[in-house]
């Protein structure tokens, strides 16, 4: 049952992405991209990342895509002809899609058990608790909970990257205002 739902959502995501690339009007592209992002949010829930699924809807569909639509509306673009690139761009795209076919053929050979085994045997990355030693003194909370499972490591082990993120967002906000305000 889960797999049927997954494949329906995956088909919706791929169709949305393809039409996002191929549609001429930017508004149509944005709306098809929204289809893809909603399907991906549902897939995240299927894969056991409920909080990330909700964040996907809130951040991408609610903020980023609305921003895109606002900009398209502000620009008042004229309806021009096709904006496809020349033969070099098309050739490069065909090469990339050929690489994808090779890659998917490789993935096709794997059974779920073999994939899980090889992922489990992959070399572990550095322990984040050692990379960010400031958080070492804190204790992990071990209650099974969708939000807490994500929040406890985020605010303990990954506290420093989380704080750095706030600086990034501040810089982005200031930069966006400066760029959009001044005449360059």
């Amino acid at each position: 049952m889960t797999e049927i739902v997954f494949y329906i959502l995956a088909a919706a995501a791929v169709v949305g992405a393809a039409l996002c690339v191929l549609q001429r009007s930017p508004i149509a592209s944005a709306l098809w991209l929204m289809t893809t992002m909603f399907s991906l949010a549902c897939i995240f829930v299927l894969l056991g990342a409920q909080l990330i699924g909700i964040l996907q809807v809130l951040v991408y569909v609610g903020a980023v895509l609305v921003l895109f639509l606002f900009v398209v509306m502000l620009l008042n673009l004229s309806h021009e002809g096709s904006d496809l690139r020349g033969p070099w761009g098309v050739g490069a795209a065909v090469v990339v899609i050929g690489l994808l076919a090779v890659e998917l053929f490789g993935l096709w050979q794997y059974t779920p058990a073999r994939l899980a085994r090889e992922v489990a045997q992959a070399p572990q990355l550095a322990d984040p608790r050692l990379a960010f030693p400031a958080a070492l003194s804190m204790h992990a909370v071990a209650t099974p909970n969708v939000v807490e499972d994500l929040a406890a490591p985020l605010f303990q082990t990954y506290l420093i990257p989380f704080e750095v993120t706030s600086v990034l967002l501040l810089a982005a906000a200031v930069g966006a205002v400066v760029l959009a305000k001044r005449r360059i």
Binding site: A13, V14, A17, A18, C20, V21, P26, S29, T36, L40, F68, V71, V72, L75, D83, L84, R85, G89, V90, A92, A93, V96, I97, L99, L100
Partner: peptide, 17 residues
Amino acid sequence: LFTLGVAGVLLRRNAIV
């Protein structure tokens, strides 16, 4: 999905798309 994104970057000239 990643490949479709790369193909879009290679194919389109509209900065928003």
